[in-house]
Write a protein that binds this DNA or RNA. Sequence first.
DNA 1: TTTATTATTTGGTAGTACCATTCACCTGCT
DNA 2: AGCAGGTGAATGGTACTACCAAATAATAAA
Lengths: 251, 251
Amino acid sequence: MSAQSIFAPAQIGRAGEDIAMQLEAAILGEKILPGERLPSERELQTQFQCGRGVIREAIRALKQKGLVETRKGAKGGAYVKNIEMTNVGESLALFLKQQRVAPGHIVEFRESIDRVIVVLAIARASAAEKQALVAETEKLLEILKGEPPDRDSLARQDQILNISLAKMSGNPIFEWVMTAIQQGFSSHDYALYDDPEYCRKTVENWYVTALRIAENDPMKALNSISAHYGLLHRCVEKQKAEAESIPSDGG
Amino acid sequence: MSAQSIFAPAQIGRAGEDIAMQLEAAILGEKILPGERLPSERELQTQFQCGRGVIREAIRALKQKGLVETRKGAKGGAYVKNIEMTNVGESLALFLKQQRVAPGHIVEFRESIDRVIVVLAIARASAAEKQALVAETEKLLEILKGEPPDRDSLARQDQILNISLAKMSGNPIFEWVMTAIQQGFSSHDYALYDDPEYCRKTVENWYVTALRIAENDPMKALNSISAHYGLLHRCVEKQKAEAESIPSDGG
DNA sequence: TTTATTATTTGGTAGTACCATTCACCTGCT
DNA sequence: AGCAGGTGAATGGTACTACCAAATAATAAA
């Protein structure tokens, strides 16, 4: 009943934007909580005193932002949901693609983040969490034993490890940033796992790193991280060189 | 003339999504370059064999992603543009707001990022850029001389400094992260500038940091950064304590 | 009580009409 | 010729109506 009179008609030039903003404000201001629904399009139409198309466009914008999801049928409508990391990641991925951010930059960023994460994780994560991390790396070793190793599984497990580690930092922002970067970079990551040599070394390095973390040895863990990204960096350089020497298949 | 037959009618359940995806693919695939226009809504309507509302919603989604901007009138339409960092930042900012991240976490994250940025900036930025940074901090000093200092200007200049510094790292991802974090937490930053003591110290610290960077002295610069965030952290704690002792005015 | 049918709600789509804005073009005056 | 002002066309923005498809609720039938 709270969402009946909180909206103003607001009929200026770009009414759609205005309505989208009002709805967004209502959501962020927790006038409408996650799980609840916005009034139906036809109700909003009367509340805002405008056409239904405008309402639809506004809701479309919210949907794009990940603020709501829509369902059809009775009891359908625009349901407020918690924003997921994937929305942020998608957005970043778009940016990275269009701006042609060099893989080297991404590697550099990830390394710098990871170094901080490792130190925080050692200081804050419980022994159980650290052991769990080691267990996850052992899974990675298992996957590597396959003949041939399943690249898809490797990449997925690698992402899981990165996220787990980020979680152990005790600071959610690291986790989110890592998730976003991984989404934006996933295509490259896959490519890197094509190199069997890089692949093997990386997996081994993950294992060592996890052990160092479990042993609460930050300096050695940082060394492992550096080694990891050293590998990654060389691999990126190598792929770049190859891409330049074979400039075929382009559009 | 290339954008006439590249779209398929594609009339399945959620046609809007489909059309948005096709348009997005066309843009990312560089079928339509930045600065160019999408066909008009009415043209797309005939190409996709659907109603104009659907087209409008699809374009609305692209607009929300920051892929296009629309203009009215003759020669108007949806123009492809380069994605700006603020668009990506908005997405993250939204997420951070909804997740109610503790200010302490943000301070921690920003410090860790800033430490890396400073080192990179010293190594990579030109002498001119470093001098420019010093000049910007001097502006901050000027603002501080006002009686009373204009908090709004201070906060804005502080943001400019952070972004400038991030830019000097030579890695656009740091710039993005800094932009995004600032967007998400401008409110906190403003609050911090309410404390005149913190304000003065911070400004002075910025100046010292810029000088250290200009002198290419990474260790001292890092010390300044630590001092900066030490201040910030104490200020956040103080405000948190105050907020807890005065639990009024809440929703 | 369970199952099948019907009605209702609600988002999704199509189409039309009209308005406001912007630009290209043309007219007419100087 | 050159400039001022008007005119018209293109285009996004809005309103409205009608209908479809899906999902739920209410009702009837077994």
